[in-house]
Amino acid sequence: MNSIFKRTYSYWFLLPAAIIYFIIFILPTIMSFFFSMTRWTLSDWEFIGFENFITFFQEQSLSIGFKNTLIYAVVTCTLKVALGLLLGVLLTSKIRTKSYLRSVIFFPTLVSTIAVGIAFSMMMHPTQGVINTALAAIGIDGPDWLGDTRIALLSVAMVDVWKGLGFATVIYIAGILSIPAEYYEALQIDGGNSWHKFWNIIVPLSRPATNSVIILAFIGGLRSFDLVWAMTKGGPGFTTDLIASIIYKQYQGGFYGLATAGNVILFLVVTALAFPLYTYLNRKEVDL
């Protein structure tokens, strides 16, 4: 009996965390899958099988939402990786103001997403916004950033990049600073220049940081809602509608079961795209 207790002793310390994880994540997930197959209100429910899923896939705006979500995720992820790496290199160099610049770059991450969305929707106003006013001062006729169907989604994506770039940069800074100094010393002995340092040392050896940024930014883009809703509410038309905003509109209309089914579909889509990407990136990761 004592031997069994000794073998299981350490696992008892995991029990509080396991209970919290079950209550906060596992249980709501199971309930979501169940209620996605019901027609429910706050006081009653009726089991209807896969009818909600069929209805959700018949939504006219769903194909646009899927396309917009994928474009949004790819654009924001790509820019956060590229700009985050460049800023990470800059802010780990020998410039004097790097500590100040690090705080400036990271500051937008601390600001509420809703506040950022409201502020930028005012700044991007076609006639009264500060951006077009500044462009007009130098003789450039600024576009309707959030009203033009051709650029509305990309305009919101740029704001998302501005807000999330600081977090990506911090990850890159940590990754670059973890590279052993011996690599730089060997490159210097071989007569390498700054480009060789960047391409042959920083890029491959900061791959773990790159993988983290890609996964976090891509999943964040697929799940994005609050910034889009604060800036455009999915408009004009369905131009900036993402899957999450379509789901929210179903909740607003009182179709709770249908919206829950949409959340399950979003969960499955994110898992189906993110898990293979995570596996692929980890397979190519360079060990220091």
Results as ranks from 00 to 15, higher is better:
Q60R: 14
M37V: 05
G147Y: 12
D141N: 11
G262T: 03
A115F: 08
F5N: 04
G262Y: 00
K249F: 15
K163R: 10
M124W: 03
V159S: 08
I151K: 10
I173Q: 09
F225S: 04
A181G: 11
A168L: 00
R96D: 05
W229D: 06
E182M: 06
D287A: 03
G235P: 00
N52H: 07
T109A: 10
F50D: 05
V228K: 00
A272S: 13
V264W: 03
P276Y: 07
I30S: 12
V161C: 14
K98Y: 12
V156T: 09
E59F: 02
P180E: 01
L205Q: 13
A217I: 14
G175S: 09
I151H: 14
K6Q: 10
T76L: 08
Q250M: 09
S103A: 15
R150L: 12
G235T: 11
A174W: 08
F33L: 04
N68R: 03
M158R: 04
L83W: 04
G175C: 08
P28A: 11
G49D: 07
D160S: 12
N68T: 10
I243R: 05
V81N: 09
N282E: 11
L85F: 14
G142I: 10
F13Q: 01
L177G: 02
P236C: 12
F66R: 06
I4C: 10
V159P: 05
E285V: 14
S194P: 06
L187A: 02
K163T: 08
L85I: 07
V161M: 13
F50R: 01
T55R: 11
V81Q: 08
F225C: 03
S3R: 10
G220L: 14
I54S: 00
